[in-house]
Design a protein around this nucleic acid. Structure first.
Lengths: 153, 153
DNA sequence: CTACAACTGTTGTATATACAAATGTAGGTA
DNA sequence: TACCTACATTTGTATATACAACAGTTGTAG
């Protein structure tokens, strides 16, 4: 269904606005679906994202700024986000030995187990959501989003 | 640049995950750009969106649920959002004459002037952001996002 | 070796998002 | 009429986002 009809916009909005509105609206739906998957586990998408980043580092701990760099949505408060994960004992932190400004953040064994469980759910939800696209369409969508990012920076 | 490189993900993530991550990340950039445009005017994207919806109704006031239906990002707190706009005197509300459960929300003259000023800035930002795509690519992107929405519901 | 600027993270404040519970109103039915 | 259910909005609580101000640490230029 056209976004113009969903949101009851006038039918002759500029193409550029249509692209933007389509993107924002579709994001909302996808984000909502991912949230629904995570809800039962009591983690937000951002918390889940941080856990995956930390797992990806293996034994090497990450500083706060490293985590932030790799987050899908750059948020201004990785401090508080990490603190929530620490409360849940999924993550631990200590000040870096050689640079006291930095902190070493790493995932706990509990965090790894937790992730292993959720990962499957998220992966299958992602497959399900993208299923309406053919392989070629998915590849093309990725290309077009990449092109769109060129000027958005 | 590939999202896998930007976020330093492993290079062999499933296509479905790549689509989702591309979408989420690109959203973040676009959203950030729009925010930057609105910042000097001290309105959020959501507040701006509500103003546009109300203007689109002409003289016909909208109920809270009508506004919510037409918002790009369905948020759970249109009440508080509208209240902020009322504080700024850009919007006014009164209880509906024939159904006391409903409220009639409408944009003020001040709100209209305010919108007129900002609209130009947003429109040109949108054009600028989509400029990296050809007309055909933009159209295709819209089509693909529409297809993606099919299962996301 | 001191002073300063840059770096890294924390804290504060305001708004937005998500969801559930509460409040008040309307309309239908026994 | 009394009651019940659905409806429309409000309120409460927790988390996320955005951004600015603050604080401690480090490296380096003079």
């Amino acid at each position: 269904m056209r976004i113009e009809d969903i949101l009851k916009l006038s039918s002759d909005i500029p193409l550029s606005k249509s692209v933007i509105v389509n993107l924002l609206y579709t994001y909302g739906l996808i984000n909502g679906e991912l949230n629904k998957v995570l809800k039962p586990y009591d983690v937000s998408i951002q918390q889940f994202n941080v856990l995956r980043i930390l797992r990806g580092r293996g034994d090497k701990p990450a500083s706060l700024s490293t985590v932030q760099d790799r987050m899908i949505n750059k948020m201004s408060n990785t401090t508080r986000l990490v603190d929530k994960l620490i409360t849940k004992q999924l993550v631990k932190k200590e000040t870096n030995k050689t640079n006291k400004r930095k902190i070493d953040i790493s995932i706990t064994a509990g965090g790894l187990n937790f992730l292993k469980e959720i990962d499957v759910m998220i992966d299958s939800k992602e497959v399900e959501m993208v299923n309406s696209l053919t392989h070629e369409e998915a590849t093309e969508l990725i290309r077009l989003l990449g092109k769109l990012r060129l000027i958005a920076n």
